[in-house]
Amino acid sequence: MILTTRQIQDAPLVLNPERKLTLVLRNLRLSDITNIAAASTKYQVLDLSGNELVTLARLPPDSVAQLEVLLLANNNITYVEEEFRNPGSLRSISLMNNNIHRFQPSFIRSFEKIESLVLVGNPITKLRDYRLFMIWLAPSLRALDLQKVSRSERQAASRKFGEERVLASGAVQEMFKLDIEPKSTEKSVALSSSDKQAHAVVNKLSETDKQQLLRKLENASSIEEIEQIENMIRSGRV
């Protein structure tokens, strides 16, 4: 379904907990948002969760001039188009529960200046050295998949893939060859002790509580919110 001007006009404009104006276009079965250019330029958060988008496409620069947070959880996004660019103000993207399954060289430009990126629930997270390579591709990241990026991770990423982002290096080219098809049944990578603790806490939750936690993660619009939720999970206070 193509986003219409009428849907934009009827869409709720709400203030999130951080008092950021949010344009809510979730659960509308949208597969094409070309007409987003018709929206007001005042919103800071664009919520497109729960639609049927298959690519992360170019956003009209004039219509997203103040955009800081892009919420795209629970779509069917498989890849990021070459034309997708950060309008300059964008700092946080949630792509939770989509179908991104390989690294793309364009990630360097696509995620420029991004401080928080969530790819939980995508096949790409099962690829070898996924976390280190994403940190190398997007050095501005402060949090990846709800976990703060540590100094030691940045150093490890530099050692493995190079101090400079040179795409022609052998180690980098090998990463771009990796691929896991969407909805793969590959075994999950080993979890750290802290991750195991977090999973154990979440598994004990009721279905209602799990859904509430998922909504909190989807709507997190800052590093501070993500860290707060992560700490609550790990301490069992969810």
Rank of each mutant, 00 (worst) to 15 (best):
H101V: 04
K148M: 13
T41D: 14
L217R: 06
A37L: 07
I100L: 02
V69M: 05
M134V: 00
T22S: 07
K196Q: 15
S192D: 10
S106A: 06
V64K: 08
L178K: 15
L117V: 03
Q211M: 08
T5M: 00
A73N: 12
A65K: 15
V64Y: 03
K196Y: 05
K187E: 15
L21P: 13
Y43E: 11
K148L: 06
T125I: 12
T22I: 10
K113E: 15
R159P: 11
S235T: 11
Q197L: 07
L127R: 00
E207F: 13
S188V: 15
E82P: 13
L3C: 04
F103V: 14
E163C: 01
G121A: 04
Q44T: 05
Q147T: 03
V64T: 11
N97D: 12
P123L: 01
N203C: 11
A200E: 13
A38H: 13
R109N: 13
E181S: 07
R29A: 09
L28H: 11
N203Q: 10
L53F: 09
F161V: 02
K204P: 01
I108P: 15
L117A: 01
Q228K: 07
I223F: 08
L56Y: 02
Q44H: 14
K187L: 06
S40Y: 01
E18D: 14
K210I: 08
P87G: 10
T22N: 15
S206F: 00
L46D: 13
I2Y: 10
